[in-house]
Design a protein around this nucleic acid. Structure first.
Lengths: 195, 195
DNA sequence: CGTCTATTTGAATGTACTCAAAAGCGGTGG
DNA sequence: CCACCGCTTTTGAGTACATTCAAATAGACG
């Protein structure tokens, strides 16, 4: 009963058996070792990937050379530089695996073909974007209205499995604080038995 | 040659004259005075509004009672609490006019009818969400990687007309800083003749 | 013209950062 | 299997960015 790409679609829309096979005929399964770059800023994002196994980070390097994690992607979600993929222009972000990953990929061309052939997929994609936007709007709000410690709580809520899977450095970067400061937040909590 | 809702659609998709009239037959034009609440947190967002004239803010009140502006909407853009509108559940945000506004509205029901009748509108909506998500992703990145002064520059880029139209208090809230600090940033710039 | 709100200015404070150094941990090769 | 190397995490001191509070000034609106 593990997740897979067809179940994922059928959570939102209803596919016929034929449509399911058509999709699977175009999907390519690829495995990546931990710490592999999928996309670098400026390159064109040629595929959209369903994460079957593993986790990744989407990040950007600022004017001072600091890496900033924008978000993480894990099992049963999609990873892509949306703007780059849609417009086939230079990517805004870097994408890197944080674990060994198994990704189920569709090239831009195959993706377009499927959206043309299976009209209901427009709805699936729309709902996907919709949910991503809703979550992104919340994120903006948290970033202005919450202090670092409360943003850390939100992170734990949103990615409950991730804390033990990735380094604190990456979590700090996602939260927008220094690794040192996250470390001191955590030690403060332990001393207070997480009140 | 001013913008209007039909031109807006035709920037993304191609509508027939019949489709255009069908849309216009369901659109309701409404005028709101400055400082009118369109939606309060917890209420159901019953309409999606195209901004023909005016500007609005989307904000949230945090646990300490402070208003936080999440973003602004102005001419030729849409305003809605997306999650509330789509699911017809309680809104996450407050929406308030900052000027006298003319909004062209579609109720949830009419919106659904149009999306069913005019399939190409699914694409329009998808592109709308796509662009909103892209811009929202950038915003998250700016909030972690830029200092207040640079975020202020990004604000001026994104909303070039807005600085003279709304109060500094609202801009400060959008930037995630106190009005006092924005004031001191601006006076610092004037002393340095905006280097 | 008066009232209410917004903006400015300055002082004291707090939150989070930088830098540096030490300790911990994980993977790799001998 | 252990020792070593490199990277991550911890800890602490000093600093910078931004806040809060208070009071004075300026602007907007009826």
């Amino acid at each position: 009963m593990q997740h897979n790409i067809i179940q994922h679609f059928n959570n939102i829309i209803n596919l016929t058996k034929e449509e399911e096979s058509r999709i699977l005929s175009l999907v390519k399964v690829r495995r990546y070792k931990k710490k592999t770059m999928l996309i670098e800023e400026g390159a064109v994002c040629r595929a959209i990937s369903y994460v079957f196994k593993g986790c990744l980070r989407i990040y950007k390097i600022d004017s001072e050379g600091i890496e900033n994690n924008v978000y993480f992607t894990l099992e049963d979600w999609w990873v892509v530089d949306l703007k780059s993929f849609i417009e086939q222009t230079g990517a805004r972000f870097y994408i890197e695996t944080l674990e060994d990953c198994e990704l189920w990929q569709l090239t831009k061309n195959d993706f377009d073909v499927l959206l043309d052939e299976i009209l209901i997929l427009e709805k699936w994609f729309r709902v996907l974007l919709q949910n991503a936007l809703i979550s992104s709007e919340n994120r903006i709000h948290y970033k202005t209205s919450l202090k670092a410690e409360d943003r850390y709580d939100k992170f734990l809520e949103k990615y409950p499995t991730l804390e033990s899977r990735i380094s604190q450095r990456h979590i700090a970067s996602y939260l927008g604080i220094s690794p040192e400061f996250l470390s001191s937040l955590k030690s403060k909590r332990h001393k207070q038995q997480k009140p």
